[in-house]
Design a binder for these strands. Structure first.
Length: 579
RNA sequence: CGGGAUGUGGCUCAGUUUGGCUAGAGCGCAGCGUUCGGGACGCUGAGGCCGGAGGUUCAAAUCCUCUCAUCCCGACCA
């Protein structure tokens, strides 16, 4: 493809509304443009990467036995009402009416449509298992779209749905998808982790996420330092802390109230009393479905609200208001403690606190804290010990006991074992070999294809721009003709262009009449894996130059025998992406 | 939805505090010339009713009211 006849509007400066690197670079490289908040146009170069990503997904999905289909984007409300999600999905669902005042929505996900389809088609266990997928534009009216393609409202998603006769079959379908996902992200040359995940609103009983590792990721994952021997990793949202309940029964001096005027936060109290935050107990007051809840964790830890919500069995959990705190503790925010709480009938305490003693905590009195607190001795309310804090670096791996580390990641894939959640509510049933009616066992498997493009860049960039891994690069080779007016240079560049295309490589041929500096900057910005530079200077010496965008390594190949020398260079570029 | 910020040529921004000449710069764009191996230089030129609506004033990009849009932080998710 000749640049002079292509459309790649690169920019020297990043747009003011772009915050993260992938967004800035995608716009600067002329790959996307914003239409409105969370909604983007794919320009030709960006579309090429998107299509390559889709094709890798398609290849592995097909190889794993899934069948591609395409469902409508517009979905009638009836199906959503049937599963109760018309209400539950809330404002994320973009709703509208047709001319006859009938309700519709734009599909944010397609469990309802696929289940509706198959309940009318599948009658017998002989027709199962089935796995159908599609690659399609989804729409979710996000609370807050942000970060360019990372969280758009309109985005490209691959969604697959499996249907099995029994649990064993569903487990096989799940495993097949899990394996396919590993091949997909490996095939994209991305560095990623499979992590245990929370099921969230999609529902079902267990799930894994696939996280592209990048310092700019929105999610935090705990992973075993023993990797790859131990592959355990989990989203901190649900990473278990396995220290367990090990009570410390050592002697503790009698509790003593100390004056701490105006010292609210953990840091303030600790510096005031000269204590380590690890000696302090944070008493967090929350409201779970309207009921007051007290939770205790160590001063240097974070509460995991998801764990607590599950423990309490609530749908909704939030921090108490200052007024509520005042009512339950008799003190302003900042002085809550486990002794003498009112309106709370039990206390949830993190396991870790059992293993310590002689704590500092709030006194439930303005400007006062208690020290020498022994939870086992001094607290009169019943205590429920549990794992309610976020994992931290150094916690033991639940799998092998080695310490875990925390990394940032971008969620690009999520697989769920759904069970019969949808097949029961929508009566998607079949007859088994005994003629008995049973609900199909379902799984669903998503990949945010447009997010993959952003994540790929978040993981692979430098000051100069993008460094595309070969499988996702919009073209394979960036061929630069430094002097298009020079007949000799152009003849050589044209020759190389033709040669590379004959090899089956996709070539972006920069034949523009621009100054060399402009072309070099654009080449680095766009970030194709291999650059080949044909210019008067080096050609006079019988050479053409090459550059590996990832390593920055430059070399010269003989112009005369370029065809013989090129494969070695290209292989070197591919090898530099082996992980 | 709560909190914060920003809207001025295609892009990045100055000017707004303290109202006052014909609204500026850099990049980009068009023409001419000089250049030509890591975003060249000179000259000439096109392009803006200062997000929108109302108001105050002799006078509004600048002050007031309302409104729309975008971005950031928080509650949700591929």
């Amino acid at each position: 493809m000749r640049w002079s006849r292509y459309y790649i509007p690169t920019l020297k400066e990043a747009p003011a509304d772009a915050e993260v690197v992938s967004h800035k670079l995608l716009v600067r490289a002329g790959m996307i443009r914003k239409l409105t908040s969370g909604i983007y146009t794919w320009l030709p170069l960006g579309l090429r990467t998107l299509e390559r990503a889709k094709n890798i997904v398609r290849r592995e999905m097909n190889a794993a036995g899934a069948c591609e289909a395409l469902m409508p984007m517009v979905i009638p409300a009836d199906l959503w009402i049937e599963t109760g999600r018309w209400e539950k999905f809330g404002d994320q669902l973009l709703r509208f009416k047709d001319r006859n005042e009938r309700d519709y929505c734009l599909g944010p996900t397609h469990e309802e449509v696929i289940t509706d389809l198959l309940r009318g088609e599948v009658r017998s266990y002989r027709q199962l298992p089935l796995n159908l997928y599609q690659i399609q534009t989804k729409f979710r009216d996000e609370l807050r779209p942000r970060f360019g393609l990372m969280r758009g409202r309109e985005f490209m998603m691959k969604d697959a749905y499996s249907f099995d006769c029994d649990d064993a079959g569903a487990d096989r379908s799940y495993a097949a998808m899990r394996d396919a996902y590993h091949r997909i992200f490996s095939g994209m040359a991305l560095s990623f982790r499979q992590v245990e995940a929370d099921t969230g609103a999609i529902g079902g009983n267990f799930s894994h996420e696939f996280m592209v590792l990048a310092d700019t990721g929105e999610d935090t994952i705990a992973s075993c330092t023993g990797w790859p021997e131990c592959a355990w990793a989990a989203n901190v949202e649900r990473a278990p802390v396995v220290t367990g309940y090990v009570p410390d029964r050592s002697e503790c001096p009698a509790p003593e109230t100390v004056s701490t005027p105006g010292q609210h936060s953990v840091e303030e109290v600790c510096s005031f009393l000269g204590a380590d935050p690890a000696r302090l107990i944070k008493t967090l007051l929350l409201v779970a479905d309207g009921t007051p809840v007290a939770a205790l964790i160590r001063g240097d830890r974070e509460l995991n609200e998801i764990k607590l919500r599950k423990l309490v069995g609530a749908d909704d959990i939030r921090f108490a208001s200052p007024e509520q705190v005042q009512a339950w503790t008799g003190a302003p925010v900042g002085f809550a403690g486990p002794v003498g709480l009112r309106g709370v009938d039990r206390i949830y305490a993190d396991n870790e606190l059992a293993a310590g003693n002689d704590w500092i905590a709030g006194a439930n009195r303005a400007d006062a804290h208690v020290r020498h607190l022994d939870l086992h001795r001094d607290v009169t309310l019943p205590i429920e010990w549990a794992d309610i804090r976020n994992a931290v670096a150094g916690d033991p791996c639940p799998c092998c006991g080695r310490p875990v580390e925390l990394k940032r990641g971008i969620e690009v894939g999520h697989i769920f074992k759904l069970g019969t959640k949808y097949s029961e509510s929508m009566k998607a049933v079949f007859l088994d070999e005994n003629g008995r009616e049973k609900p199909m066992i379902m799984g669903c498997y998503g990949i945010g294809v447009s997010r993959v493009v952003a994540a790929c860049i978040e993981q692979n960039f430098d000051e100069g721009g993008i460094m595309f891994p070969p499988p996702l690069a919009p073209f394979d080779v960036h061929l630069i003709n430094l002097d298009p007016k020079n007949a000799e240079v152009s003849a050589k560049a044209d020759e190389i262009h033709a040669f590379l295309e004959e090899l089956g490589l996709e070539v972006l041929y920069d034949d523009r009449e621009e100054r060399p500096g402009v072309k070099f900057k654009d080449a680095d910005l766009i970030g194709l894996p291999a650059q080949i530079v044909v210019g008067g200077k080096s050609l006079a010496g019988g050479k053409v130059e090459t550059k590996n965008r990832r390593t920055g390594e430059k070399s010269a190949l003989p112009a005369e025998t370029f065809a013989d020398a090129f494969p070695g260079f290209w292989q070197g570029v591919l090898d530099s992406w082996q992980r």
